[in-house]
Amino acid sequence: MSSIRYPVLKEGAMIGVTAPSSGAEERIHPWLEEARERLAISGFGVQFGETVWTQNKAKSAPAAKRAEEFNAMVQAADVDLIIPPWGGELLIEMVDQVDYDRLPCKWVMGYSDLSVLLLAITLKTGIATAHGTNFVDLRGEVTDETTAMWQAVLSTETGGAIVQHSSSSYLKEWPKEAGKAVFNLTEPTMWSAILPDGLEPRGSIRLQGRLLGGCIDVIRHLIGTPYGDVAAFREVHIPGEKLLWYLENCELVTTDVRRSLVQMKLAGWFERCSGIMFGRSPANRPVENYMIEDVYADLADELGLPIIYDIDCGHVPPQLTLINGAFAEVEVEAGRGTVKQYFT
Rank of each mutant, 00 (worst) to 15 (best):
M291L: 15
F278S: 04
V108P: 10
V236T: 15
D101R: 14
T125N: 10
V330A: 02
L154Y: 01
E187N: 10
E25Q: 15
P239F: 10
L322D: 02
S192R: 15
E177G: 14
K176P: 10
W53N: 05
T146K: 05
V98C: 03
Y111W: 15
V332Y: 01
Q263W: 08
T255F: 03
D80Q: 13
T254K: 06
I41F: 15
M73A: 09
P226A: 01
I219C: 06
I205D: 11
V153T: 05
P201V: 14
T189K: 09
G214D: 05
K124A: 08
A267E: 13
I276D: 00
M190T: 15
V163W: 08
Y100L: 07
Y246A: 13
L32V: 07
A24Q: 14
A120H: 00
Y309H: 11
R210A: 08
V98N: 00
I311L: 03
E145G: 06
F327W: 12
L299Y: 04
A61G: 02
D80T: 09
L320R: 02
L322G: 01
E25T: 13
T54C: 08
A76K: 07
I83K: 05
E187V: 13
D310V: 03
S112W: 02
G159E: 09
V153H: 01
R38F: 12
I307Q: 00
A40V: 06
H131W: 09
L266S: 12
Y342H: 14
T129S: 03
I323N: 05
A326S: 12
H29V: 03
Y227M: 11
E173A: 09
I216C: 10
S3Y: 11
T143G: 03
Y111C: 14
E69P: 00
I308K: 06
E293G: 01
L212H: 02
R139K: 14
L117V: 12
H131V: 12
F135H: 00
H315G: 00
V163F: 05
G132M: 03
N249Y: 07
A13N: 05
R27W: 13
L118Y: 06
S155N: 08
Y100I: 04
D310Y: 04
R280K: 14
R234K: 14
A72D: 09
G126N: 09
R206F: 06
L9V: 12
L322F: 02
I194D: 06
G126H: 04
S167N: 13
R202P: 02
H315L: 07
A72C: 12
T133A: 08
V142I: 11
A267C: 08
F343A: 00
V262M: 07
A19P: 08
C105Q: 06
R259T: 11
T133P: 13
S42N: 14
V98S: 04
L81N: 03
G198V: 10
P286L: 08
S166F: 07
L91I: 03
G314C: 04
W191T: 13
C215D: 15
G87H: 05
V257E: 07
M190D: 11
L138D: 05
E329P: 01
S168N: 14
R5S: 09
L199N: 15
P20V: 07
H315W: 07
S22C: 09
K106I: 11
R285I: 01
L305G: 04
D101Y: 12
T338C: 10
F44H: 03
E173T: 14
A61K: 12
A35V: 00
A35P: 00
L222V: 08
I15S: 01
